Amino acid sequence: MEKNTKIYIAGHRGMVGSAVCRSLEKKGYTNLIGRTSKELDLKNQQAVLDFLQKEKPVAIIDAAARVGGILANNDFPYQFLMENMQIQNNLIDSALKAGIEKFVFLGSSCIYPKFAPQPLKEEYLLTDSLEPTNEWYAIAKITGVKLCQAIRKQFNKDYVSLMPTNLYGHYDNFDLQTSHVLPAMIRKFHEAKENNHADVVLWGSGTPMREFLFVDDMAEAVVYALENELPEYLYNVGSGKDITIRELAETIQNVIGHQGQIIWDTEKPDGTPRKLMDVSKMKSIGWQYSTELNEGIEKTYDWYLENIGSFKEVKM
């Protein structure tokens, strides 16, 4: 792919999209385009088609989505299902109609069944029921994967889906009502440290196991998919390592320097017992992660401290 190739990054201001932009710019790409939600409403089918037919990007990266943790998924199921389907369906269908040959669709490990064997292989998709607390988001993302697969099969276009594990890093969402577990913990431990090392209450038992990937590593995987024609339609992207939520909490507590107690509220849900990705397919074609968890948390906390005055609470 030429360095002046026009690439449209949907969701370029989000955590993943902005990381992809940084990664592409670092590699010398000079013709990146993005639009804010005010400039282009991705839920508006005609607006998306008009935009792509006018701009004619060579490649599209779909990093746009309504995202959130267990609480947000539970409280706003309709928005998580409908808005994510609108965004991705408009982008995928309009890309096909506009003749765009390269499309990278980003999803989530939550597309796999709740009790699928571990580690999660790509072929486990649609083999059993989903985790109820985030099935709305998962169903939307599964639809996106299948749309890209169908286009690949029927029209022979290079549309590929990358399913990241739990991502974290710069420009993460630190709102306690809508954030994922790792950024929520960073904020909780930081605020408790500032409050004379007050105790920190965390949801669940701490026993579920989770895998995490620094968002800059995810961006590198996206660039790899852009620069290469991947032979299959679906790839897991992660570290291939997991830890318990309790271990995660203790790691974050140590990085932040919080000295209070951790109290586990076992009345709150744990979610899926374990979600570890089998990343052997990505590794076999030449890509693997590089940032270890402790280093990634340190980088994320540094960014949090630098930007702490600019955060806005997310309204659903």
Rank of each mutant, 00 (worst) to 15 (best):
L176S: 13
E39C: 05
E211W: 05
N173K: 08
L293A: 10
F103H: 07
T5L: 10
F51H: 12
Q118C: 04
I252E: 05
E227Q: 09
G69L: 03
L32W: 06
D217M: 02
A249Y: 06
A198D: 08
K56R: 13
I263H: 10
T244S: 15
T133V: 11
C110D: 09
H190D: 14
I92G: 02
K188C: 06
I9P: 11
K43F: 02
A150M: 09
L52Q: 00
H258E: 08
M316N: 14
A140N: 02
E25N: 13
M209A: 13
N74V: 12
R187W: 07
N74I: 14
G107K: 07
A219N: 03
E39A: 08
K38W: 11
E194K: 15
G257D: 05
F80M: 09
N228L: 07
M85F: 01
V48H: 02
Y124L: 12
H190Q: 07
V48K: 03
D62P: 00
S109F: 13
L71D: 15
K102G: 05
W203G: 09
D75P: 00
K121V: 09
Y233E: 14
Q154V: 09
V223T: 15
A249K: 06
D75G: 01
L120A: 04
I100G: 01
S284L: 12
N195K: 09
T207P: 01
S280I: 04
N73T: 12
L230V: 14
T30N: 01
Y78S: 11
D75R: 14
L202R: 06
D128S: 12
K56Y: 04
E83A: 07
V255W: 00
P77Y: 07
E211G: 09
A221I: 07
G240Y: 07
D93F: 05
E229Q: 15
E123S: 12
S37I: 11
D302Y: 03
Q88F: 03
Y301R: 07
G286I: 07
